[in-house]
Design a protein around this nucleic acid. Structure first.
Ligand SMILES: [Zn+2]
Ligand SMILES: [Zn+2]
Ligand SMILES: [Zn+2]
Ligand SMILES: [Zn+2]
Lengths: 139, 139
DNA sequence: TCATTTGATGTTACTCTATAACATCTTCGG
DNA sequence: CCGAAGATGTTATAGAGTAACATCAAATGA
């Protein structure tokens, strides 16, 4: 056995995501890594991201096809994401009660929940006050 | 003006989604439509889907990159999706209270919510009883 | 009526995201 | 040393979505 342990590359990708102020796509990470590893391929990036996700260190943003680092303080569980469609920032809201409410709701209808994905698009405080509220929101 | 009205093609796509027992990708719909319109292109499919979504007749499933028809009874608002990772069926759970709880949670942290996406992966009643609970869940 | 404009649709080509398939290397037990 | 099992490298391809521009059709107004 001995390797779903994180290696130097995994750590480097995690560091990229920690340093970024917004979610990065796998191909953003690929470009970033190419500086140090010119021959690295998409498969390697996705393998690292999968490992990091299992370790609770990163989380995929389904509605953006992108990835974020998880704050070390939060438990290794999915969180509610608040995604600003103006500046691209993503806030991870630790609201265990809300997640519970969602899984309870689907359980009530006979479903067996396993992996909740909760992402809310909108505007962060800064952008809401700065910009014209009439804006189009990307997918 | 006179055309964000739905045309025959839009209706045909909606009918495909209504008839399907699981979400269809835009390219599934493309293949289906090619029988009647051999030269139709992806752009046309996406244009129709955008129109149908605005009309509240279809909803995108972000975690599957696919589309479902909305039950006519439900209001034209996003619903909580319960996605079975075994059989692929998606149940649309009408739980306005839960959606409100989610938007309230992010509002509490200063965010201005606009478009909530709530999708829960797991197993439907049938699959949970029939199959081995140890399974891998796709993204 | 006819030119102008405006939005819808067709068409081509492309970008971005993700994975399949298979080769190669490494580690470890025997 | 040998073989198995897993990690990693490498190539190629599938799948999702959009940009850009041509073309067409209906509406408008002189
Ligand atoms: Zn913002
Ligand atoms: Zn706003
Ligand atoms: Zn099922
Ligand atoms: Zn289950």
């Amino acid at each position: 056995m001995a390797a779903n342990l994180l290696n130097a590359r995994d750590m480097a990708l995690h560091a990229c995501l920690c340093a970024a102020s917004r979610p990065l796509s796998a191909y953003d990470l690929l470009d970033a890594r190419r500086a140090a590893e010119p021959r690295i391929a998409p498969t390697a990036i996705y393998r690292s991201l999968t490992k990091l996700e299992k370790a609770g260190l990163v989380q995929r943003v389904a509605t953006l096809n992108a990835w974020i680092a998880r704050p070390p303080k939060l438990p290794a569980e999915p969180s509610v994401l608040a995604i600003c469609d103006s500046c691209g920032a993503v806030e991870q809201v630790a609201e265990a009660g809300v997640i519970q409410a969602v899984t309870d709701a689907v359980t009530r209808s006979g479903f067996h929940p396993n992996r909740p994905v909760i992402e809310v698009h909108g505007h962060c405080t800064r952008c809401e006050s700065e910009t014209d509220p009439t804006r189009s929101a990307p997918r």
